[in-house]
């Protein structure tokens, strides 16, 4: 159950802080409460390259670190693959437009702001990413989420971070109203999650000692709610738009088990903090005992 604001950025920020954030979904602001990345890096004195966020577009560029002084300077390393691609391709970006598209809901993006501009080459260098290889892969990828998967695999191989957060966003095509494209995106996301699990199990740094949590940020409007238009949006705040699921798999987590009690989206951070041995002291949710 998500009892917060049903906008993608603010809801994802709430997932990352364990508190229902209340800022304008489209505003370029940081979450108010400390993120999981800050709890983890501060409590365990971990370096920046041990916590990563791979996010879909400009709207998510503040997701890695809050404005709360608790974790100042201890946020995650954030990669926006589309921005990286755009920065590396420059005038040839039109060759990759299928990957650079933004979602239909917000065709006009908020500006990044000067403090978040960075040189694509610098990030590519940090990632030890061959620009040629990256562009060659991008040329065959069919969606922005597939590009995120590629970057995730690269980050795992190069840095093997203990904490990796990936936000998939292809499903947002639902706002265009085409049900076929929406369901195609769902199938693609499902496949990408499976690919991620394969990456985990094929990497000795992760195999059999990694937990993976998969969850939507929230649901979608119910078909019968007169205030909405079914699958197309998440505006009504009706029970279906607030109700979703969470899947946990990995080392020590029971397989083929379904838990039917109601839990909240903000329970994620305390649960992950418990697994990572840090203290999400300002998070409002509760640890999920079933996976600990």
């Amino acid at each position: 159950m998500n009892r917060g604001i049903l906008g993608h950025y603010v809801a994802t920020a709430s997932l990352a802080t364990g508190c229902y954030e209340t800022f304008d979904n489209f505003a370029p602001v940081k979450p108010r409460n400390p993120t999981l990345f800050e709890y983890y890096r501060r409590d365990l004195a971990r370096p920046a390259l041990d916590a990563w966020v791979i996010a879909p577009n400009n709207g998510f560029n503040h997701i890695g670190e809050s404005s709360n002084p608790y974790g100042e300077g201890r946020g995650a390393t954030v990669v926006l693959p589309k921005q990286l691609l755009s920065g590396l391709t420059g005038k040839t970006a039109s060759d990759y437009e299928r990957l650079l598209r933004d979602n239909y809901e917000s065709p006009v993006e908020m500006p990044l702001g000067d403090s978040h501009k960075f040189a694509a080459e610098e990030l590519a260098s940090l990632l030890q990413l061959s620009v040629t290889d990256f562009l060659a892969h991008a040329a065959t990828a069919t969606s922005p989420d597939e590009l995120s998967l590629y970057i995730a695999g690269h980050v795992m191989k190069q840095f093997a971070p203990s904490l990796l957060w990936i936000t998939l966003h292809d499903i947002d095509i639902a706002h265009s109203g085409a049900f076929s494209l929406y369901t195609e995106a769902i199938v693609r996301s499902d496949r990408i999650c499976a690919e991620l699990w394969k990456l985990i199990q094929n990497n000795p740094e992760y195999k059999d000692k990694t937990s993976m949590f998969i969850l939507p940020d929230f649901g979608r409007d119910g078909d019968t709610d007169a205030g909405g238009n079914g699958f197309q949006h998440h505006r009504t705040g009706d029970p279906l738009s607030r109700t979703t699921w969470i899947m946990a798999l990995g080392s020590g987590i029971r397989e083929n088990t379904t838990v039917n009690r109601m839990v909240e989206s903000i329970d994620l951070v305390p649960t992950l903090a418990s697994l990572l041995k840090c203290d999400a002291r300002y998070a409002a949710g509760r640890p999920l005992a079933e996976v600990l």
Binding site: Y104, E105, H175, S176, G177, A178, Q232, H233
Partner: peptide
């Protein structure tokens, strides 16, 4: 007021009907 009606005819028909 319709979302997606500008780009997909199927969305236009559904939204117009609604």
């Amino acid at each position: 007021e319709g979302s997606g009606t500008q780009i997909f005819s199927t969305t236009f028909v559904q939204w117009a009907g609604r």
